[in-house]
Structure formats: structure tokens, C-alpha cells
Amino acid sequence: MKFSEIKEHLGTFTVGIAGAGGLGSNCAIALARSGIGHLVIADYDTVESSNLNRQYYFTCQVGMKKTEALKENLIKVNPKIVIDIYDTKLNPANIPVIYNECDIIVEAFDSPDMKEMLAETALSLWPERPLIMGSGLAGYGRNNILKQRNIGNNLIVCGDEESETSDQLPPMAPRVGVVANMQANAVVEILLKQNTYENNS
């Protein structure tokens, strides 16, 4: 497939991103560059200067809502993309409404409690819908242990499944970026296998 054909195909899909931090912002940018037609992004946070070591924001955006700032950046990358943003904290009551139309969902939270909440909610609501999670990305180096694990038909985990953030193991742009782009790469792979006609029917 030529890139123009890939882009045309990906343009027919909607991808949900839960969280707009290190994973979510970098994953969204990669998906926008790839030609995904529609992104649905939720986060309640504000851009802080401490985020700039790994998240796809700029110094002039400090103080802005992450959803607003990310939308601004995504449109600069790909003006054709349709973006729905929700400045809200996700929970089992709003997830079914916010992500209902998505073909695939990317989990991009920082906290393990939120990761669990999203997985439990999304997998029980939509048992067949692909969910791409991130787990284990703190620190630097150790490229060789970053991996993708497919659990059943529709749950994919990207990361090393062992590196938890701490004072001594901070999240940093290179390793967070690798995992965010692994998630985007998994999204592209799944959507390129899906027939647009089936998707729309």
C-alpha cells in the first residue's frame, strides 16, 4: 500500500485517547501525522512546565488546558483532522458516552488506578473493541526490554511491564516517546487490517 492509500484508509477511522500526558500527547501526534480521520481526547489537566520534559507541549502553552493545547498542536500537524476534546476526569459514567463512537481506544494514563478503571470499563462495555494500553516506560535506556504483548484478540500492552516511575526512575521523553509511538504503531496496524466497509456497517 502506498502512503496516500494508507492515509485515505486511516482517514475513515475514529481513535479514542484516554489521557493527554506523555503517552497521550505523543501518540496523538503520531496518529495525526499518519492520517487518522478523527480523534477523541479526554484529560482534565493543565500544561505545567514540568511536563515539557516528555509531553508534546510548548513553553507558551504552560497554563493552558492540555486538551486545548493538544488540539492546537494537532491541527498544526494535520489541519484536516477532526478532534473532539473533553476537559474532564474520566470515570465509568462518562467513558461510555465519550468513547462510544471510537473504533479503537488508547489508554494513556499515568496512574495505575486509572489504567485499571479504564480497562474494566472499556472491556466490559465493548468486549471486542481493541484497547491499547501502556505499562512500564519509566527511566531511560533498556530499549531491548520494551515490547508489545497481545492478550486475546483485542487487548494490547506496550512497555516493559516492570519499570514504575519513582524519584530515581523519572519518566523521560525518549522512553515515554518510544512507548507512545508503539501504541500509535499498534493502532495503525490494527486499522490497516480492518476493512472500511465492515467498519461502517
Binding site: G19, G21, G22, L23, G24, A108, F109, D110, S111, P112, K115, E116, A119, E120, L123, S124, M133, G134, S135, G136, L137, A138, R149, I151, G152, N153, V157, G159, E161, E162, S163, E164, T165, P171, V176
Partner: peptide
């Protein structure tokens, strides 16, 4: 066997001979 077991059901969900169990650790960071 591909069915997610919620935390509240850990005491009741039974694993039997031949089952396929997958466990995933959720590490902080994102």
C-alpha cells in the same frame, strides 16, 4: 480465557484445569 475479571470478583472467579490465564501488571507512568 479472554474474559476480564474485575478486582471485586477475585474471590469468586474460579480457575479450572485447562484455563488460559493472563495477568498484566499496571505500572505507573504515562
Amino acid at each position: 480465557n479472554s474474559k476480564l475479571i474485575k478486582r471485586e470478583d477475585y474471590d469468586n472467579a474460579v480457575i479450572r484445569d485447562g484455563d488460559d490465564v493472563q495477568m498484566l501488571y499496571l505500572m505507573s507512568g504515562g
